[in-house]
């Protein structure tokens, strides 16, 4: 592909990803509120549109027109960069997600690693946002959040290494190809659980939502944000959640592989199932304490992920013969 064509393809895909992320956030927020309503025996939003279907659309319109408040002593540049740096990696990580056979922007040699590396930049955004707000809650939220992020990145990466070992490649299409008969969930159940749990921590969802534990920190790093910038954090959170779930589908559930239905549909069904799982967890489990969370990462998940590597090696032997 020539340079210009690559650029055009990239720009197009960027615009598409952004639209997808935006639409997804709108839908997922509503779904989440509905699910939380069911779990807590409420009905959730009901007033805007039939069954409250337009509630989040209305929210977005409201957010866009809200005043953009910036604390007087906040560092202007960092305050602006913070939300951007959390949202952009989430959008960028869509570049390697295979929605279906041709629907992947770049089937990189290092696709799997790319997916793990790019969202890592989010930690910078969280720190900046928390620090720039010049507010103790924000600051603590930002520090906790990125500390958690970095700690859980290690077991998460190691959990994925197991899959890479089995697939023998970092290329997304090769990972999918390797699961044509048996999804890795079967060979790597521990890896799947590890990936899922550490992903919950990575996207700051309960039971790992320490950085924004409302009862302690108001809203964590985004306490001082409002309007569009606040919406960007939301976009980042749900974008990252969807991307991570999509990747769980790729890594463990065989992506779009499935009988009868087209790959695209299978992919969405599996991904949304995982998204639902995370929401279910969120609304049923209590929250960890900050120090428990760190201990869990280093003393439980890290050793477990090493065990998982050994298991992956055994699984390789089984597959090989």
């Amino acid at each position: 592909m020539s340079g210009a064509a690559t650029f055009a393809w990239g720009a197009l895909w960027g615009a598409v990803s952004l639209t997808i992320v935006g639409a997804l956030t709108t839908v997922l927020v509503l779904v989440e509120r509905k699910i939380s309503g069911r779990i807590q025996m409420r009905v959730g939003p009901m007033h805007t549109g039939p069954h409250g279907l337009l509630q989040t659309v209305a929210d977005i319109v409201k957010l866009l027109f809200k005043e953009d408040v910036r604390p007087a002593r906040a560092d202007a540049m960092a305050f602006r960069l913070g939300p951007l740096l959390t949202a952009v990696p989430a959008v960028l990580s869509f570049a390697v997600i295979p929605f279906g056979a041709p629907l992947i922007m770049r089937d990189l040699n290092v696709g799997v690693l790319y997916f793990l590396a790019v969202p890592g930049v989010t930690a910078v955004g969280l720190l900046l946002a928390g620090w720039a707000s010049y507010d103790n809650y924000s600051f603590l939220g930002g520090l906790r959040s990125s500390a958690q992020f970095i700690s859980y990145e290690i077991p998460r990466t190691l959990a994925v290494v197991g899959v890479v070992m089995l697939a023998g490649s970092l290329r997304v299409s090769a990972v999918l190809e390797a699961q044509r008969t048996v999804p890795f969930l079967v060979l790597e159940p521990l890896g799947f659980v590890l990936y899922l749990v550490t992903t919950l921590a990575e996207v700051n969802r309960t039971p790992f939502d320490i950085p924004e534990a409302e009862s302690e920190l108001v809203a964590g790093y985004h306490t001082e944000y409002s309007g569009f910038r606040w919406a960007l954090f939301f976009l980042a959170e749900y974008g990252a959640l969807f991307a991570a779930s999509a990747f769980a589908t790729v890594l463990f559930l065989g992506g779009g592989n499935g009988p009868l239905l087209p790959a695209f549909v299978w992919f969405l069904v599996k991904t949304l199932a995982i998204v639902f799982l995370t929401m279910w967890i969120r609304w049923t489990l209590p929250r960890f304490r900050s120090d428990q969370l760190m201990r869990l990462a280093w003393k439980v998940f890290l050793p477990l992920s090493l065990v998982n590597l050994v298991l992956a090696g055994l699984a390789m032997q089984v597959v090989a013969g």
Partner: peptide, 22 residues
Amino acid sequence: ADFVSVVQIFVYVGGVVVLMLF
């Protein structure tokens, strides 16, 4: 050098820069 490129993002931007900010 795509692998080096991703390692650079992973280790430097996601690691060293975050450490420095800390």
